[in-house]
Design a protein around this nucleic acid. Structure first.
Lengths: 216, 216
DNA sequence: CAGCTATTGATATATTTTTCACAATAATTC
DNA sequence: GAATTATTGTGAAAAATATATCAATAGCTG
């Protein structure tokens, strides 16, 4: 089965698109509707679905509720997933306070930092010393962590995370971390993204054909 | 010339890798060094370079300083690029205060919001009423904007940005925005990224071969 | 300074990803 | 309820992307 990261990313987008379509009153959708809402082709939608064995009705499309449930199941979103953050600076703090995950089965449960002035162990989402990271992760069976420390610390901290048993890291530090054998790492690099925009805005200025980019 | 978004993203990463290699004392690099540092193959590095007419010396590799300068030139990073943010909530505020752009030629110059309690017009990086967005963008010739408003407002605000003359949008709202003809949009969707990690961590649990993902 | 060696740059090959095309078929119409 | 139509599901084709190969050659060695 040829099923890759991009395909999963699209699955998440389909789920989001479905949420919007549902809010608009859709009870069933056709691959074309979803394609429009998610910004892809209808072939792509059907192909993606076929990879995961998602089926609809010929001529009848897909029932929105069933489809959402099926996608959530594939994405493992029918359970709650606990997530921790290391590095409670600007970005880490913002993510710690970010609302809007919970509906989707993602719950940020704790933050960690080395700076004692940032500790807030009594809060509902506590900010704890980095020293306590490993025991917390182990006793709470955390698998996913967000890394939001300065670049110089990033590699070191990623090793701490992996040693503690974290299996998925969302990395905001501006260095490209590489996953170990059984650890998945997603890198989000704001500067790289902005550089990309700058590049394409510049070439557009030079009247090269317009460009639209997707994330992935 | 087959030059796509991914290729530009890699160019940014090469630049970052070069910065690190330089700090390590490298004066010249071979495609293999860069490949290792950036997590790609050496063929990929040379292919990317050839697309932009970047040349080295056979047997002599590439001179780090020249290479960095050339890449910066291609990315348009030898000038300062002014960036604005709309939506000074958690994320927007964090980005407004984020250090580490300036070295790279990116400067966040102002934030905008509809909530008067957030206005701070006297700060070095002022937070201004959204009403003033258009005139500010026009008189300061801003081309790049970060969109960090709640999902329900995202589409509307993106139209305001485009109407004001913004040509590149970095979108943090959890809906997939689509670019107009001459507007480039990059979507960063935290929930989608986390869902992705969750998926791959889950399949890894089920002892499927290990997966490592790259951003893009 | 002739021969050797490592590396680029370019072309060819392989792989991955997307789109196309259409048979199968479920809903709708008459 | 037969004919028609719209939509899925999938295998084949095309396009895009990445890797491998190798001749050309710049630098190194003795």
């Amino acid at each position: 089965m040829v099923m890759n990261r991009k395909c999963i990313l699209r699955l998440s987008r389909y789920k989001n698109a479905l949420k919007r379509l549902k809010a608009l009153g859709f009870v069933k959708v056709f691959s074309g509707n979803l394609a429009d809402a998610a910004g892809v082709t209808s072939s792509q939608v059907r192909k993606d679905f076929s990879l995961f064995g998602i089926t609809g009705n010929r001529r009848g499309g897909y029932k929105v509720d069933e489809l959402v449930l099926r996608i959530r199941e594939i994405l493992g979103k029918n359970e709650i997933h606990k997530v921790v953050i290391i590095g409670i600076g600007n970005i880490g703090n913002a993510l710690l306070r970010y609302k809007g995950f919970e509906t989707g089965g993602i719950r940020i449960v704790a933050g960690f930092d080395i700076d004692p002035s940032r500790y807030q162990p009594e809060r509902p989402v506590p900010i704890l010393p980095l020293d306590e990271f490993r025991s917390y992760v182990e006793s709470n069976e955390i698998k996913i962590g967000i890394l939001a420390v300065p670049d110089v610390a990033a590699h070191h901290v990623s090793e701490i995370m992996i040693a503690a048993g974290i299996k998925g890291i969302l990395n905001f530090a501006p260095i490209q971390l590489r996953g170990a054998d059984d650890v998945v790492i997603s890198n989000i690099n704001l500067e790289v993204e902005l550089e990309n925009l700058i590049y394409f805005v510049n070439v557009a200025d030079k009247s090269v054909p317009a460009l639209v980019t997707e994330d992935d």
